[in-house]
Write a protein that binds this DNA or RNA. Sequence first.
DNA 1: TGTTTAACCGAAAACGTTTTTGTAATATTA
DNA 2: TAATATTACAAAAACGTTTTCGGTTAAACA
Lengths: 344, 344
Amino acid sequence: MPIRLKDLAMKTGYSISTISRALLGYKDVSSETRQKIKEAAKKHDYYPYQSARQLRAGKTYVVGFLIPTYGMRFSDPFFIELLTGIGDGAAAENYDVLVGTSPEGGSEIEAYKRIVAGGRVDGVIITRTKKSDKRVEYLLKAHIPFVLLGRTSDKPDVAFIDIDSKSGIRLLTEHLIKIGHRKIGFITSPDGLVFTQYRNEGYREALKNSGINYNPAFIKAGDLTQETGKILGLELLKQQNRPTAIVAANDLTALGIYSAANQLGLKIGSDISICGYDGIALAENAHPSLTTIQVPIYEIGRQLFDMLYKIMNNRPLKQRQILLPPQPVIRNSVGPPQKKEKQG
Amino acid sequence: MPIRLKDLAMKTGYSISTISRALLGYKDVSSETRQKIKEAAKKHDYYPYQSARQLRAGKTYVVGFLIPTYGMRFSDPFFIELLTGIGDGAAAENYDVLVGTSPEGGSEIEAYKRIVAGGRVDGVIITRTKKSDKRVEYLLKAHIPFVLLGRTSDKPDVAFIDIDSKSGIRLLTEHLIKIGHRKIGFITSPDGLVFTQYRNEGYREALKNSGINYNPAFIKAGDLTQETGKILGLELLKQQNRPTAIVAANDLTALGIYSAANQLGLKIGSDISICGYDGIALAENAHPSLTTIQVPIYEIGRQLFDMLYKIMNNRPLKQRQILLPPQPVIRNSVGPPQKKEKQG
DNA sequence: TGTTTAACCGAAAACGTTTTTGTAATATTA
DNA sequence: TAATATTACAAAAACGTTTTCGGTTAAACA
C-alpha cells in the first residue's frame, strides 16, 4: 500500500496542507520544516496520487499519442524512434505518454474523444496529418493543446513541425536526373495524407524542370508498408520499358522495392537505383545502403513534446511552425543508369 | 469545455447519482429513464472524467509499459509490433496504455515507482526480464498486478509468456549442423537478460549433441542492435579461420551481420549462413530472406494484456505461465557451407 | 508597552465521480 | 385494511490532493 499525505502527516506531526505545500515549494513553510518533510517523503517513498492531484489541479501531466496502425502487422520503426523521443522529452518534465492505437475504421476520432473528453491528457501529438483532418477540427473545438507532425492544409494557425518534403523528394529526383536517369518511377503514399501531396509535387517539379515527361505508368500509390513496396516495385520493374530508378515515399517502401529488385535479379545501385525517405536506422545498414532523406526522428519527437509543453503551460514559444530543410543522404543504392538502358 | 454529470443532471432533470447509476447499468433505475439518460449522454458527448472516477473507484483503467531504450537511437521494430498488440488488446477493454522510456541509468526503477506509487496504472507489462529483476521485486512488494514477457530466474510464481528460446536457438543451430556446418558463430545478447542464458544454453547444447567443440573465438556478446551486429559480425568474419555460419540473438543483430558480410563480399546463404530470432516483418523481406524463429509478437502483446486484465480484475486465468514452442522459419539466408571451407 | 507586520502553519473547501444509505411511492401480501 | 416488500430515485459521503483563507505566534516598530 503506497504512502499518502495523510500518512506523512501522522509520521511527521505536521498537517496535510503543510506537507503538501512544503513538497510543492511554497514559501510560507520554514526551510527547517521543509527539510524534515522532504526527508520523510523520500524515506517513505512518497509519490503523489495522480488522480487526486489531477482532480484538484485540473492537470494530468500526460500527453496523448495515437499510433496510426493500418492493419495488424504494423511495424514501422519510424514510430518507435519518434515515440522514444517524445517519451524522453516527457520524462524530462515529469510527464507521461498515453499511447493508443487508432483503429483503422472511422472510429479513429472516437479514440481521441475518449482520451480528450475523458480528461486523460493535457495535450495531444498528432502524426500523419490528413488534408482536412477531423482530429484537428475536434481538438480545436475541444480547446485542448496539440501539436502536429506534418502540416494541415486548411487550418493555418496550428503548431507543427514538418520536413519540407516537397524539396526533399525534388532533391532526390534531381540527383537521379543529374546522374543520367530519365525513367524514374515513384511509389507514393496514401492519397489522404498531407505529405503525399507535397512529395508528389516535388517529384513532378523535378521532372518538369528537366523537361522530362510525366509518365503515369511509372507512378504507383502505396501504403508506406514494406509488403506493398515489394508488390508495387514488382509491378513497376516487370514493365517492358521499366524505370531505371525509383523514388519511394518512405524507407520501408524502398526496402520493399529492394526485395522486388532482388527477386528479379536486378542489382541495386546499377541496374536499378532506389531512394527512400525518413532515414530510419535500417536504411543505413541495408545492403546496399539506402539513399534517403535523413529525418532526425528522435529529435523531432523531443521537440514536438517541448512545443506541446510550452503550449500547455502558457510558456512563450519561439516558433509555432517549424519547417525543417530536407537532408539528402546519397548512399550506394543509387548510381548512373546502365548504358544499354540509358535513353533520353 | 467537456460536459459532466452535473450538466447532464441539469439537462435531464435527474440527480447526479441516478445518472451515474443509469450509465453504469445499475438495476435500480427504470429502463425508461435509463434510456432517456443514455440518449442525453450520447447526444452531448459525455465521457466520464477519469481522474474523478479513479479517485473514487481506485482504478485507473491504464496499464503501464516501459520501453527498454538503451541509448537514443532506439528503433527495434519488435517493440512497435508488441505495443500495437498491447494497445489493441487494451482498447478492446476500454483500457489505455501508459508508455514510458526507461532511462539507461540505474534510475529505471525510479520510472516504475513514479508510475506505480503515483497510482497512474492498474498493472504493468515488463519486457526483457533480467536474472534477478529489481522491477519484479518492486512490483511484488507494491502488490500491483503485472505480467512478464520472458521468465525470471528467481521468482517462481509470477505470470509470464515466453518463447522456449533455448529450444529455438538449439533448433537453428542443429539445422546448421545438419546441412554441414561445423564452425558456427554466435552473437548473443547482454549478459543480464534472462533469455540470454537460455539462448546460450541452446547453442551449446546443439554443439555438444553433435560433438562439436565450443570455440570461444566464435562467441561475441552484443546488445541486440543492428550497429553492434555489424561490428561484431566483422570481428567474427575477419578471423583467419572464420565461422561458416552465425546465429544471432535477434533479427536486428542478424541484419547487422548482413552488412558485415556484404562489406566483406561474402554471399549470404552460401559463403556465410546467418540466422536471426524474433521474426520481425523486415526479416521476411530482407535479401536474402532471413532464417529466424518466428515469434507471434502482435498476438503475444494481445495475450499479455489479456492475462494482465484477468489478474487485475480477479478473473480466472487458465494459465499463469505460458511457454510457447519456437517456430523456426528456414529461409534463404542459410545454406550448406562452401566446399573448400568445409572441415570437421 | 501597545500596535502593526511578517512568518508559519492548520482548517476546510473543492475537483467529479462512485457507492452507500435513505426515502417516498407503489405494489404485494396477509 | 394494515403490514410489508419492492421500485425508483435523491442525498451525501468518500477518494487524496491543492489551494484559499484564517489564525496564532513572534518579530518589528512606534
